[in-house]
């Protein structure tokens, strides 16, 4: 009898512990879901004669400025994003942060660059990425193919003429033979049964 009671007590204890863990787990998850909110970021681009600045203003859902929010600024490049600004860029009491945009970043042929502003891993706000295209880069003109000297390291259009001739001649001669053989097979297939030998 005593053993049964002890067993029941143990079962109750374990069940209670499990329920407690389960309940707490949901509490934690619930807390995260409820407390995380979306931040709003407004971007302002200020350019004077010498320098260019990006001013970002972060506000919450009640349009109140968010203080001390870490923002990350990038410029999209071919393989990854180039970080710009300081190492840490946190908003001030007005919810703004100002960073300088480098003057010498290459853009596309018209000078367009893609600027990314991100909120990453904040305790209070959800991750966010804002993408803006701005004509702040240095226009990258395609290399002048008429000026470039023909060489092994030049662009495809400026390959050395002897190389083009040799490779083309080789490809042409071998593929001519291949097509000739295919034509021969075609002719073989067209020969009708006259005087055919038995196996």
């Amino acid at each position: 009898m005593k053993t049964t009671i002890i067993n029941i007590i143990w079962i109750l204890k374990i069940s209670w512990s499990l329920l407690f863990i389960f309940f707490n787990f949901h509490m934690v998850l619930g807390q995260e879901d409820e407390s995380m909110e979306d931040a709003k970021i407004a971007l302002d681009f200020v350019a004077d004669t010498d320098s260019k600045f990006i001013v970002a203003t972060a506000t919450n859902s009640n349009n109140e400025p968010i203080e001390d929010l870490e923002l990350y600024f990038y410029v999209k490049r071919s393989f990854s994003n180039l970080p710009i600004g300081d190492i840490f860029n946190a908003t001030d009491e007005n919810g703004t942060v100002k960073i300088e945009f480098p003057n010498d970043l290459p853009g596309d042929s018209e000078g367009n660059v893609t600027i990314l502003v991100k909120v990453i891993d904040s305790d209070l706000y959800n991750d966010l990425t804002i993408e803006t295209i701005k004509k702040w880069g240095v226009p990258s003109l395609p290399p002048d193919q008429f000026q470039e000297k023909r060489s092994l390291w030049a662009a495809a259009a400026n390959a050395p003429i002897p190389l083009i001739l040799i490779i083309s001649a080789l490809i042409f001669s071998i593929w001519f033979i291949i097509f000739y053989i295919i034509y021969m097979f075609f002719k073989i297939s067209k020969i009708e049964i006259i005087n055919s030998k038995s196996y």
Binding site: I174, I177, I191, K197
Partner: peptide, 28 residues
């Protein structure tokens, strides 16, 4: 088999193809 029936003409053409191939495959 593309209509192959051991016709002497076919055999002659195939022999020609074999010869051309034997020579051209080597540099490739």
């Amino acid at each position: 088999a593309i209509n192959w029936h051991n016709d002497p003409k076919q055999v002659a053409m195939l022999q020609k193809v074999t010869k051309i191939l034997a020579i051209s495959v080597l540099p490739v």
